[in-house]
Amino acid sequence: MQLFSDFSVNIAMNGRPEDRRLVEDILQGRKGAFEELLRAYKKLVIHIVFRMIYNSADREDICQDVFIKIFQNLSSFRQEAKLSTWIGRISYNCCLNYLEKKRTFLMEDFWYEKNWDDLEGDIISPADSAVLTDLKDKVETEMEKMPVNHRLALTLYHLDGLGYSEIAEVLNLPEGTIKSYLFRARHYLKKKLMHHYHLEEL
């Protein structure tokens, strides 16, 4: 079943002129143009793939596949779209196809309700807390436990600077759902770090 293989995404946003030029250069075969695109959007692709796929052996192959799909489908890219959103969507679909093949399913929305209760319970002592050397690692550890779409929304918003509507286009979800994911994920992280890792002491 090819549920997630639609790469000619219908995205209605204003594309940046430099992106438009870059795409035209690649389509006209200018040497080094695709290399520019690769360097400009490598981080975005890595962020999405690494957030969605935890099998480190497959991550690099998936990142490569994403760029090959970008190259193969560039002629179907609509110039009024934003290149970052289009590339994000391709990366997301590639990862979903991979997860579907591996029969890994995205966690459902009730995850917070199920995991919220243990907030008040097993508080990690400062000694245990010291095992995780810095707060960044702690955030990473907590994010790994979250549903895929929630941690992906956090990454696209905070690391890649995408807006609500752009994240909604990448994940193919309503904007309101993205806002709700972001709110719940941040609130969860804040409470988790405050209770488990004594954020107030750090």
Binding site: K42, F50, E60, L154, L189
Partner: peptide
């Protein structure tokens, strides 16, 4: 503090031969 932590680049490295 949470916003600041979320904006920090994670340790996600690809091999030097990736490009």
């Amino acid at each position: 503090e949470i916003y600041h932590l979320l904006a920090q680049e994670p340790d996600s490295q690809l091999s030097p031969e990736f490009e």
